[in-house]
Nucleic acid binder design. Structure first.
Lengths: 329, 329
DNA sequence: TCTTAATGTGTAATCGATTCCACATTGCGA
DNA sequence: TCGCAATGTGGAATCGATTACACATTAAGA
């Protein structure tokens, strides 16, 4: 692969001039410009980003740390980010932790060594060690979905969403409402959504039977199992069940259908996530659109802001949500 | 951020020795080793990949060009690749074309300028210009899902899958079989799957009514519309419909259910893709598991092979598929 | 005791770009 | 005609690492 030196030699100018030509900085006469253009055309020369980055300390790369890339949520997030970042000439370097905390730490270092211009962190459970690492990070960093002190955040309104959904059930006359959650170590999905549900129940003075509180692990099967547990172990069967993700809700619906419960007459169901199929299920699933793409975009905008303007002001952005009331309630 | 020079100074050795320490190359006495270790520990020094890459011509980055990152197929592919690549210390640099051909070309250059060690291309429609560009590429390159001459490929057996599904319908006694495809500019999904269907129909001497042949655009809604067209414009309504993707099939099922057709008694349905929900639909959708993750893994293995061994042998790998016969047929 | 090999460490060139200077040329007003 | 600004080009240091080579020290074998 050709280098700037060879181009310079071939065009009979100094590499300084070639550099000026490439970056449109400083004066280059029309004559010389044409010569360089021609040589570059002929050789198909492409400047090395690495050499460039070494000097300029700019890589035009944003590191994105994800807990997984298999979910719709993740793809949407990345799609949103990419839309904004690509427009400014940035690319995404992927770091997939597979929910492994050590990897999270490892990747922070790796991204640092690759001198990414910024890091977007979509973490699910935030360890102290990680927070610590981030706080002493010089690279701009934005977190999505979990509140982390000291850096900018794009947040979902998990607590109020949970309250809103529970409240929706209550407004429809339900008093016995079940809950399918996930591990509370996941602050946003596990803890806050549960708290929202519990608080809303308490506000209406509705008791919550322990058997109504089940946990899944983010997939359809565990939603099925959770629903099974609810229906088969509770004294009083609930007439509505709130699942903290669409997948869990889908699993729950599957159980209900298999056991000839009518949705929503016997048991109403709601999820969170607005997955693509949610609208096309039978009945269509009531859910909440978190606007992940928007979250991705906002995070990208925040990070670019920080990079460009040296705008170190920390921003906490809480996104709005859209409750999609559909056939399942 | 500290550099190797500062570390060297602080540890009172030359930067050469520090480098040897870092890379475990050459001799470093226990005494010196400890001093360096200590300094690195204290400063939190992390070597710059850029400087390193500039010298070594190795970036440990694989560029991945995707038509979109919103689909399950894409996420699975990337997940598969990442699993293999991460294990060898490689990271993924994302290049999302959004189905834009010019972007495809642009990204090839961009990845080249970033000197990625290899490129994995998941293209849907391959322009001549692109093939041309690839052929004169010095960087190892692997294509997934579309056959491109001159480089290694990981292929799905689109043609035979289509024949197998059509044949399945026929074996169940169906003679009137509809088809929901996509644009044929997409060779694999559009052209080959259609050809497989048509050939199998012809083999059994079953006529195909033009109205049975509909096109969608990869989403649920267009599957719905396509099914609507089939049922509302054909003279003889088909008793089975083969959709080339699960999403199209889901849309088709939705139409059928809404219009009180029983699946599979009135109309049988099959898709391709083995999307996560396919199993949990009602009835569960007959589909074909393309093993995208495996495809991603294989592509990653191929690329690493080429990088490591300078093994320039071109390999064409056609993956096996699993036909998942379920309730919808 | 002297060679020779093994063990440690440092010097300096190098990778491919950017950028601060210095220097050369030209044109224009005084 | 001179001086100065505008225009155009090149020299050389620099970014942060790797690596060939030279050199110094030590240990082992004859």
């Amino acid at each position: 692969m050709a280098t700037i030196n060879e181009i310079a030699k071939m065009a009979k100018v100094s590499r300084t001039t070639v550099s000026r030509f490439l970056n449109n900085s400083g004066y280059v006469s029309e004559d010389v410009r044409k010569r360089i253009e021609k040589v570059i055309e002929e050789t198909g020369y492409i400047p090395s980003q690495y050499a460039k980055s070494l000097r300029t300390k700019q890589t035009k790369v944003i590191g994105v740390i994800l807990p997984t890339i298999r979910t719709e949520t993740s793809s949407r997030l990345v799609a949103g980010m990419d839309e904004i970042l690509a427009a400014s000439g940035y690319q995404i370097l992927l770091a997939n932790t597979n929910l492994n905390k050590e990897k999270e730490m490892e990747y922070m270092d790796l991204l640092k060594s690759r001198q990414v211009d910024g890091i977007i962190l979509a973490a699910t459970n935030v360890s102290d060690a990680l927070v610590n690492k981030i706080s002493q990070l010089v690279i701009p960093c934005v977190a999505i979905g979990q509140e982390i002190d000291g850096i900018s955040n794009v947040l979902y309104d998990d607590y109020h969403v949970a309250r809103a959904l529970t409240s929706l059930f209550i407004s429809k006359g339900h008093q016995h409402i079940g809950f399918i959650g996930v591990a509370e170590s996941d602050r946003s999905v596990g803890l806050l959504r549960k708290k929202g549900y519990l608080d809303e129940m308490e506000k209406s003075d509705f008791a919550v039977e322990p058997a109504w509180l089940q946990k899944g692990i983010f997939d359809i099967d565990s939603g099925y199992t959770a629903m099974k547990n609810i229906m088969e172990t509770s004294n009083q069967k609930p007439t509505a069940v709130f699942a903290v993700t669409d997948r869990l809700a889908i699993g729950a619906m599957k159980y209900l259908k298999e056991h000839n419960y009518n949705i929503p007459d016997d048991v109403a169901i709601a999820g969170i996530g607005a997955s693509e199929v949610s609208m096309h299920l039978d009945p269509s699933l009531t859910t909440v659109d978190y606007q992940n793409e928007k979250a991705g975009k906002e995070a990208a905008i925040l990070i670019l802001d920080q990079i460009k303007k040296e705008n170190k002001a920390i921003k906490k952005l809480t996104l709005t949500y859209r409750l999609l009331e559909r056939g399942s309630v």
